[in-house]
Design a protein around this nucleic acid. Sequence first.
DNA 1: CGATTTACATACAGCCTGTATGTTTTTGAC
DNA 2: GTCAAAAACATACAGGCTGTATGTAAATCG
Lengths: 192, 192
Amino acid sequence: MSRSNRERTEQTRQALIDAGRRLFVEKGYAETATPEIVAAAGVTRGALYHHFEDKRALFRAVIECEAKAVAEAIEAHSASCDAPRATLIAGASAYFDAMRAEGRTRLLLIEAPAVLGLSATAAIDAENAEATLRAGLAAMLPEAGTMLEPLTSLLSAAFDRAAIAIEAGAERRPYEQAIAVLLDGLADHLRR
Amino acid sequence: MSRSNRERTEQTRQALIDAGRRLFVEKGYAETATPEIVAAAGVTRGALYHHFEDKRALFRAVIECEAKAVAEAIEAHSASCDAPRATLIAGASAYFDAMRAEGRTRLLLIEAPAVLGLSATAAIDAENAEATLRAGLAAMLPEAGTMLEPLTSLLSAAFDRAAIAIEAGAERRPYEQAIAVLLDGLADHLRR
DNA sequence: CGATTTACATACAGCCTGTATGTTTTTGAC
DNA sequence: GTCAAAAACATACAGGCTGTATGTAAATCG
């Protein structure tokens, strides 16, 4: 049984990413040792350091996978209603759905900023979810003008906090309602 | 020259906390080694492990100091106007002022949740800043009802994000404006 | 089919963390 | 004041982890 090099690399990388993801979620980045990861992946540390520059690079790969998965889930579920408000509400719902994946909030919202740095993390996923949000806000609030950027940033943070609260066991409905009220209030207020 | 035990302990603890704070801000928790901390503090690792259970306990002490400092700064600057809206706006401004201390956003908002866990971090400072925010919102939005909790949580996250953006070099005014618009929008919308 | 590159596995050096043990200083009672 | 006990450190040690260097087998390619 012989595998092509392409296959070997792909399978090993994926096994390491999967094992790393599981352990990073379970115990956090700092408490997860590379011997443990490679054992779970069924390879040796040699393979790990052949495919990734260091432990952090493996973590970055895990985070990039997660961010991509979130972006695709939102993309797929983007009920592109032409009503801007409905589009935004649907997008928020899709985001909460996507963030329900086991440990995803911990990985993307807690560990990644600390391990990879704030700017690196922002560069990875902000360009995904936050750009969508900005576009939605621009459509719903044409009067926002120079405040579009700050509002996008603040609401994005609110979405993240809601996702964390929901994964922590909070009811989802009140948070979706609160988001809707925030958006409607913005529309009301800026329209004057 | 002989110091009382109370003095010795107080001075050593403070030296460790100060040195730890500086290095944690400069290089992050994970990249800061205890030999470095004790060297900067002018003691040995024996003193560190005599006064703190482990490295994380020292970090926790640093975080508790920071959270306390923030709470006191807000308390001191709480221009208790009787107009609820003005009180909230002033509180937000005081929060941004307090968070301008070197590295404070990194410590409190990035590292602490990852190192101490989300719930432990929330328990340390949420009871301070978030309670104030909840009270302010309750006064300004008596119609909030069951949505008071989620709204407090979401706006708290927005405040945090604003503080991070400001420390990262963003203009402060647009963020304060955005916060004001969010609050006013809420008031407008819930009043119907 | 032979040479080179790729994909690993193994071995090693250095550092760090937490603990155990030893030493000095303070405290408190007589 | 002195002596025992406890507190406040300092030193020494064991174990584990990270990253690198080196060695080997499999795949690619001319």
